[in-house]
């Protein structure tokens, strides 16, 4: 009789343990999804801004056809990209092409003074900042989630219920400087 009670208690504890890990996995996955939607909103915003930008710039920049074609091409690639990795790559190329355009614009003072262009430029800059700040928090969430999936004992439950690791949003054409860290305090 008492043996049965002990078995029941052990089973109950195990079930509760599994439930709590399962719930925390769900919570982490939802956070990743939420962080991703933050990036996605901004990526879409950038895609919406580009046709407008090309339209404004076209009248002034006669010699930079190639850059503009690249931008249009990468934009449609980015829009049709499926996975996070593909998206990151396409968006990275798009950022690169936009950066090139930004350098070329320096040669067109008339364009730089155009009110319409100035406000477009501001929107684009802001959208790119938002992407980069949202990316940071997305990658943080992915790290938490992936750690949980890989670590014992939550890896067992993750395997049972088919939780898959998420991809980081890494941009290859990174302008950020990765200077080696120097620690002065030690």
């Amino acid at each position: 009789m008492s043996g049965l009670i002990i078995v029941l208690i052990v089973v109950a504890v195990v079930v509760l343990f599994v439930i709590s890990i399962y719930n925390s996995l769900i919570q982490l996955r939802n956070r990743v999804k939420n962080a991703w939607s933050q990036i996605d909103v901004q990526l879409k915003r950038r895609h919406d801004l580009i046709p407008n930008l090309i339209e404004t710039v076209k009248g002034y920049m006669k010699h930079e056809r190639e850059t503009m074609e690249n931008i249009t091409k990468y934009r449609s690639q980015a829009m049709s990209a499926g996975t996070v990795g593909e998206k990151a790559q396409a968006e990275g190329l798009l950022s690169g092409a936009l950066g090139q355009l930004r350098v070329q614009i320096e040669n067109y003072p008339d364009l730089k003074a155009n009110q319409n262009f100035i406000s477009l430029q501001e929107e684009l800059t802001s959208t790119e900042n938002k992407i980069s700040y949202a990316r940071q928090s997305y990658n943080d969430q992915v790290l938490f989630y992936n750690n949980k999936i890989q670590m014992f004992p939550s890896n067992i439950i993750a395997g049972m219920f088919n939780f898959k690791e998420e991809e980081f949003f890494e941009v290859e054409d990174e302008k950020e400087r990765a200077v080696p860290k120097v620690n002065f305090s030690s």
Partner: peptide
């Protein structure tokens, strides 16, 4: 002031 508004929104995202 679109720029001020944008900058505040950027920091809202960055600071969660």
């Amino acid at each position: 002031h679109p720029q001020l508004f944008n900058v505040v929104e950027e920091m809202k995202i960055s600071a969660s």
